[in-house]
Simulated assay, not measured.
Amino acid sequence: MKTSLYVFINLICVLILSACGGSSDKSVSTNVTGVQDTITSTIDTYLNANSAPNEPGLSIIIKKDDVVVYQSNRGLANKQTNTGINSDTGFRLASVSKPFTALAIMQLYEQGLISMEDKLLDYIPELSSNWQAITVEHLLTHRSGIPDFLNDIWSDKRNSGLTNQGLIQFFAKTPELEFPPGSKGDYSNTGYVLLAEIVARVSGLSFSEYMQQNIFTPIGMHNSYITDETTPLKMGDALNFADKDTYHGFKMYTYGSMAQVSSANDLSKFTLALKNHQIVNQQTLALMIEPHANLVNVGDYGYGFAIRDGFDHSGLWDSFNTLLRFYPEQEIELIYLSNGGEVTDLHMSNIQKLVRDFYKL
């Protein structure tokens, strides 16, 4: 099925930037430029050679030692209104939403309200008793065995208009697992939808309210919010290919695995707050960026972060290409948000390589 293949390819690209550095479309190419004297000239040379002001574009921030050393915005958030991208433009984060969902869980963990060994059914008892062995940690580390509703069992009919509650109802009636919980790791968006529901049920708030009250507002992420069936994309935020706001041509309202909207400026505030332990404490962050699983086609994974020479998460969904990358030993962070599909996916990989080459990472 064409759609299933597209989603599977996107999943592979979600986390493996080094292995998925280019586009699956051979007609998409870029002018390769190299390292220049400064990080500004290095990235500007590349973008000047490869981006146009009247096309969908991107928003980038690079930080070194908590100082912004590069910041740029190119292209359009909305072609129809000719609205340009700036550093406060909100982008759908795609799978970069997952670290935020994991942090919400870990805040509740710090308060003693959740344990990693707690059973999923303790919080969502309407799910099948066949899932009794699944724990919170299994969900965080993609080791639950629950099929991924976006690539393992894609359905246009089911996913059109799908909500978190609709997904829970579907799995309550369709409880078959892909493997015994904890026996291996396989990336699953479903697990992070269920984690968002756990956050809501434990806190007594909607997931959106929890994120606003406990993460976004306290650190000044004023352009960040969760989209769902009651909260559409805000005016001025980036559209897919700068002209549409639907996934695969239809609306989908699940959140936790995706659906967060944030700007580059907001993510810059987030990186500083995370490093300064304003969101979770030092011990909790260390636990999150420690490898807890080895995922098929992904590699080492902690709680909400892929673990490589640093830690990160990337996202690719229906023309949104996003990256949040930490190199803690070198005190470097890379924030990349875009809405241009195949070509901005290629830019994401190329710019990450330029950053690594410039700083000799």
Results as ranks from 00 to 15, higher is better:
1 M>T: 13
3 T>N: 09
4 S>M: 03
9 I>R: 15
15 L>A: 03
17 L>I: 10
17 L>N: 14
18 S>C: 02
20 C>A: 15
22 G>L: 01
25 D>A: 08
25 D>V: 07
28 V>C: 06
29 S>D: 04
34 G>V: 01
37 D>F: 06
40 T>S: 15
43 I>G: 05
45 T>C: 06
50 N>L: 00
60 I>M: 07
62 I>V: 15
63 K>Y: 04
65 D>L: 04
67 V>Q: 15
77 A>M: 02
77 A>Q: 02
87 S>Q: 14
89 T>D: 09
90 G>V: 13
94 A>F: 04
95 S>F: 02
97 S>L: 06
102 A>I: 09
102 A>H: 05
103 L>I: 10
107 Q>M: 14
112 G>P: 12
128 S>I: 11
133 A>Q: 13
134 I>Y: 11
138 H>R: 08
138 H>Q: 14
141 T>M: 00
152 D>Y: 00
155 S>I: 01
160 S>H: 11
163 T>N: 11
164 N>G: 12
166 G>L: 12
169 Q>H: 14
171 F>N: 14
172 A>K: 12
182 G>L: 05
183 S>N: 07
186 D>L: 05
188 S>T: 14
194 L>T: 07
195 L>T: 04
199 V>T: 14
199 V>M: 10
204 G>W: 00
205 L>I: 00
207 F>L: 08
210 Y>P: 10
212 Q>G: 08
215 I>N: 06
218 P>S: 01
220 G>S: 11
222 H>M: 10
224 S>L: 09
224 S>K: 07
227 T>M: 15
228 D>W: 01
230 T>Q: 15
234 K>G: 05
247 Y>A: 10
249 G>N: 10
250 F>G: 04
254 T>I: 15
261 V>A: 12
264 A>R: 13
266 D>V: 11
271 T>R: 07
272 L>G: 00
272 L>C: 00
276 N>H: 12
285 L>C: 04
290 E>I: 04
291 P>R: 02
292 H>S: 05
298 V>N: 02
301 Y>K: 02
307 I>D: 10
310 G>Y: 08
311 F>N: 04
321 N>Y: 00
327 Y>K: 08
328 P>T: 10
331 E>M: 09
333 E>L: 02
337 L>I: 02
347 H>T: 01
354 L>A: 08
354 L>C: 06
356 R>G: 01
359 Y>P: 06
361 L>D: 06
